[in-house]
């Protein structure tokens, strides 16, 4: 069935079954491949996008449930917080294989959008849903703190 969805500010019509996870609509129908498949059961966070500005695991979200919700992917994030996070990620050389990093960056933006000066505990609670098999966690934590400082300054 044709489903109308708004992604990164652009409206699209996609012809997919309603149970298709948002992840596969983004990747296969729209070609927005920055959002990654890692587990398919909302355990790893590689597929994290924003729904109406809040983080969402797109692998566990059927497209039929989207309605008027607005989706933002790694390709569509912008603004001061997103820039601060991505700059910190690059300056710290956070990524190793890099495959989980779109999801990590999205979760970090979500955290810093709500908590300007996150504690280690805040970082643990926001970010532990994002698995990094390379275990680049030391730098993920450091980069979030760097970004927070940038946003304060």
């Amino acid at each position: 069935m044709a489903i109308s969805i708004k992604v990164n500010g652009v409206r699209h019509s996609v012809d997919v079954d309603g149970d298709t996870p948002l992840l596969w609509v983004l990747r296969d129908a729209l070609g927005l491949t920055g959002t990654k498949f890692g587990c398919g059961i909302a355990q790893c966070g590689a597929c994290t996008v924003f729904l109406n500005g809040k983080p969402l695991r797109s692998c566990a979200f059927p497209i039929a449930a989207l309605g008027d919700g607005e989706v933002t992917t790694i390709e569509g994030v912008n603004g001061r917080t997103a820039r601060a996070v991505q700059r910190a990620w690059t300056a710290r050389d956070v990524p190793q294989c890099g495959y989980c990093q779109s999801g990590q960056v999205m979760s970090a933006i979500a955290l810093l959008s709500e908590v300007r000066r996150p504690t280690d505990r805040d970082i643990d609670l926001a970010m532990n849903g994002n698995i990094c098999r390379c275990a680049a966690y030391v730098r993920i934590r450091a980069a979030i703190k760097d970004a927070a400082r940038t946003l304060e300054g």
Partner: peptide, 8 residues
């Protein structure tokens, strides 16, 4: 490869 991995 950091930048391209941080922006998807």
């Amino acid at each position: 490869d950091s930048a391209s991995k941080a922006n998807g």
